[in-house]
Amino acid sequence: MAKSHVSTTVNGDPVEFLCDTAETMLDVLRNTMGLTGTKEGCGTGDCGACSIIVDGRLVCGCLMLAVEATGKQVTTIEGIGAPDRLHPVQQAFLEDAALQCGFCTPGFIVAAKALLDRNPDPSETEIRYWLAGNLCRCTGYDKIVRAVQHAAAEMKGQPA
C-alpha cells in the first residue's frame, strides 16, 4: 500500500516524511529521521523512554501514529539544548549524577522540561507524580528528583 505523506514540525524545523499508517511517531523519529535520542523501552506507554512533547503536551511517542503528526509541533530530546548549550535540566542531570546507564534519561529530561515549562516551582511530590510514568532501573530516582529541583532553582536564577 502507498505510504502516507506527512508534513509536520520537529524541533522547530518543518519536516516532511513518508510512513506506513501503522508506524508510530517513535518509529519515524528513530528510523526515518535518525533522531535516535528518543528511546523505545516498552512500546506500550508504561516506561516513558519515548517521551516527546506534541503541541505542548507530554506524550509517549510509541502511543501516537506518525500520520497523526500532520500540522503538529513536535519536540524531542534533540530539540532541548545543544552540546555546547545544555538545557538547565540536562546540566543538572550531569552535575547531580542523575543517570547511570542513560537509557531512560532522554525521556526524563523531556518530561522534566515539560513540567518546568508549566510549573517553574514544583514540590518534590509534584515532581514524583509528574515523572511516575518514566521508569529508571538504575538510579532509584532520588538523584533524578534532586536534579529536577536543582534545574528549577537554576531556571529561577537562584543557586540550588
Binding site: G45, G48, R57, V59, A111, A132, G133
Partner: peptide
Amino acid sequence: IGSTQVQGR
C-alpha cells in the same frame, strides 16, 4: 488514568 504522558492523549 495512567502517567502524565498517557494523560496527554
